[in-house]
Design a protein around this nucleic acid. Structure first.
Lengths: 193, 193
DNA sequence: TGTCTAGTAGACAAACCTGTCTGCTTTCAA
DNA sequence: TTGAAAGCAGACAGGTTTGTCTACTAGACA
């Protein structure tokens, strides 16, 4: 008897089409470079509908970032299982998976952050939230791996993750998977060899 | 008798003022976010003068990147001297120096690259040139340090440099200098201790 | 039948973007 | 003194930006 069929702002087909189109365009070409008119045209949606679900462009950008974060967490949940160390290596395998995909254009969070100078802007805060989640996840895994300096090592792994995402985009190194593995193992310390 | 006083495109005071103003604005707010009108207004220059020295905005952006590269090389030349290992550590100290400066907003090359999707764009090529220079410099220093895998280690140091520039901007870690030192020494291998 | 909701289509305003072009002033050297 | 070069000031064109608003259509439900 209360909000049974349409709960607005969640399960509307038009809203999903907008967010989906925006995601592809924002990632491929950048946030400032893509205008509203282009998004509504490619999503096949009226302008009024757009502004009904996203009162301003920045709200769409924030939704885009939050959706990327949600998908990243879902992917991570799937691959975590066996030992803590194997989980960490699997997380870094995701970097290689992303980087070898056809339309790879770097990390969506880092790219978006570069376009928003103000750290207090909602978009930047959404990015910061995602980064904090990832950092804490790594730290927890390191604790489970009996790492003596989990907090510091999590910092270093964050550095490695960002750097690998950047270098795989801008430098396209040969044998990326080997580079990733060597980088991570050097940070974790090789157990036997 | 030939090009004695003004060689155009190099030693014009107006040109320097334009490039200087653009550098500050581009770095602080992003390339797409800053328009020509704003640059010429703050530089105190006529529009015709601007388009005389920079036929298009992208040429100004390219000049901005190349000037940043030139300054980075000059800084690096100054601090390289003693042993190869000390030189590498000094290069990474530059990251901490930059990150602790008042208006720090990340690496200008990474920020600009995020705004130019096309890798064949002149701006992206200028960025690639700078990255290649830095990578080769690190590799040469590693060879001089008698590193057995100079090429691979240079790749990893590039990852570390990018990651540190990112994390010092987005995460503002406490004790950045310690994080840098630990990261680099872990990659190079601690000599004694 | 009547009403409520979601959506489409598109005009419109106001600001901003890049780039061109016309005049005017200043400087300096032959 | 004359003339070239450099620069300033600003109008202008053509396009794009975000966001608002009006008018219409299709479906669900009571």
């Amino acid at each position: 008897m209360m909000g049974h069929a349409t709960d607005i702002s969640r399960e509307s087909a038009a809203r999903k089409r907008i967010l989906n189109t925006a995601t592809n365009l924002f990632y491929a070409e950048g946030v400032h470079a893509v205008g509203i008119d282009r998004i509504i045209a490619e999503a096949g949606v009226a302008k009024a509908t757009f502004y009904k679900y996203f009162p301003a462009k920045d709200e769409l950008v924030r939704a885009y970032i939050q959706e990327q974060s949600r998908q990243g967490r879902a992917m991570t949940d799937k691959i975590i299982g066996r030992s803590a160390r194997e989980s960490i290596l699997a997380i870094f395998d995701l970097v290689a998976d992303a980087a070898t995909q056809p339309g790879y254009r770097g990390c969506p969070f880092l790219n978006a952050a570069a376009e928003y100078p103000d750290p207090s802007h909602p978009v930047r805060q959404a990015i910061a939230e995602h980064r904090l989640w990832k950092h804490d996840l790594l730290r927890d895994l390191l604790v489970a791996d009996r790492n003596a300096h989990a907090e510091t090592t999590a910092d270093i792994l964050t550095v490695a993750s960002d750097g690998l995402l950047i270098t795989s985009h801008l430098d396209k190194p040969t044998n990326l998977r080997r580079l990733i593995r060597e980088t991570v193992l050097q940070i974790l310390g090789v157990p036997d060899k």
